[in-house]
Nucleic acid binder design. Sequence first.
RNA 1: GGCCCGUUGGUCAAGCGGCUAAGACACGGCCCUCUCAAGGCUGAAACAUGGGUUCGAUUCCCGUACGGGUCACCA
Length: 548
Amino acid sequence: MDYNYLAELLFPDVTMTEQELEEKFPPRILKEGSIVSRMAPSPTGFVHLGNLVQGLTSERLCHQSNGILFLRVEDTDQKREVAGAVDVLINTLKHYNINFDEGATVDGDSGNYGPYRQRQRKDIYHVYAKRLVREGKAYPCFCTEEELAKNHEQQEALKENFGYYGKWAIWRDRSIEDIETQLKLGMPWVLRFRSNGSIDNKIKFTDCIKGNLELTENDIDHVLLKSDGIPTYHFAHAVDDHLMRTTHVVRGDEWLSTLPFHIQLFTALGFKVPKYLHIGPLMKMDGDSKRKLSKRKDPELALTFYKQEGYPAESLYEYILTVLNSNYEDWRRMNPDAPTDDFKFSFKKMNPAGSLFDEAKLNDVSKNVISRMTSDKVYELSSEWAREYDPELYDEMTADPSYTKAIFSIGRGGKKPRKDLSVWKDVRGYIDFFFDNLFEIKDAYPDRFDKNDIKSTLSEFLKTFDVADDSGVWFEKIKDIADMLGFASDMKAYRENPEAYRGNVSDISMFIRIAITGKENSPDMYSVMQILGYDRVAQRINNMINSL
RNA sequence: GGCCCGUUGGUCAAGCGGCUAAGACACGGCCCUCUCAAGGCUGAAACAUGGGUUCGAUUCCCGUACGGGUCACCA
């Protein structure tokens, strides 16, 4: 077979040379040990947790080593592409603090190793495809979908391995005449890799996360170029990551099974094989067993879910970091105020197995993240969330920003900040009583108390209430009411001899609290009243007295 | 079905041949406290299983079970 002839037949239009490409995309000049990696998602319009896990890993590795992180859009499958998906992708990643040094952006490409959208790289792939044909390492295949499906059925019946290999690879050794005949008829074809591997051989490989692996050699003649001339993931991966000078490939471990093929391909092309990090999948509990998070069944896989719930981007970022590097949590406890970037991320700490996604843990992480924010920040982020998901709340909370910020500053900023909020969705239930339009009495007074005691408490409180009091004086006045009504003002005394009293000062406080906040539980009442001001407090107490 | 990967408390996880097997979340108790959110102390709770190797295995090897992945002109 004259492979040169075949190569010209298949790729008559290739004009570029490999030499030109090598010169156009020279090895990057970076410090020793700098990592070049990428995110290479396909624009399906669905950005999920897995993207974030992978992206965050790549991002940390690159930026911690003074390397380069770039974004490459893998748009080789036109059928699955959704309009506008690239912009959604870029904006979402940015929101989660994953910033690229080069690659696709909303305004086109930036960087010297582009184009970064694979469909625009068609001519580049063909240069290498032609070379492989010339060397007898690739060949055209004219099988139809039906023929392939039939093969699969037969293999199933014969209990043989699936795929296009050996005797099933019917175009592998066809004559040039047969090929030319099909070509002249205008029949569609794909370009296949001519594998020289055997399933009887093993290859050894070291993955950065999984460690030493022993994998079976690939004997399948995988498709390199689809019938539209666009490459499959495999071929694009090899060509692009070579030309873009990627040093580390981070991806899900569902790719492990094609790794032998990828290594084969890099070798056949004469490219240096990059280092790989194969990340275990995110799982969830389903009844008694774990399973991989699924796009169709699990809304919490989509990043939009977290936006709707109102998780700050930082919370998700920190949660993923704790899953990826378990020592992150300890580090955070030691360095509560340090920027996240100061943490030394290491892929050596990554778990080779899949992790269960734990929403309770996420909530805890998020609670801590929010508790560290200033009230200004909480105001900014929560109102941003409310604008989209709770317009009524948005109107109330933004009417007087300084008032709302004062609410958020209760118990905030000290060594032991309050931790009431996990998500912005919680904000409404936390602050609603501060706004007359949202205020309502949610908890009733327990039956065991005498209404007259409640009324007396409220009216006595109002008689002496002065917003200018400091918290000590303010509380002394409440204690006085307790004593007056036969309730214990001293909790220790009460505990020692509860029978001697009709109740205690916490009951008295509760009487007032329900009138003011509508609930049995609230943050520090003194602070609450300071913010509400005399008029609102008086009005609510009077309303309550009248309704009893 | 073939091939591959994985398996430490309910969950996330330290651990790399010798430990009373960390820590965090969740759960129980106590303390603190005007209630709550916290915080402090404390409790219960784990090396999937059977064989080896070894003076000694959670750690190394093999089998079994279970879980996961993959076998497309999808990535």
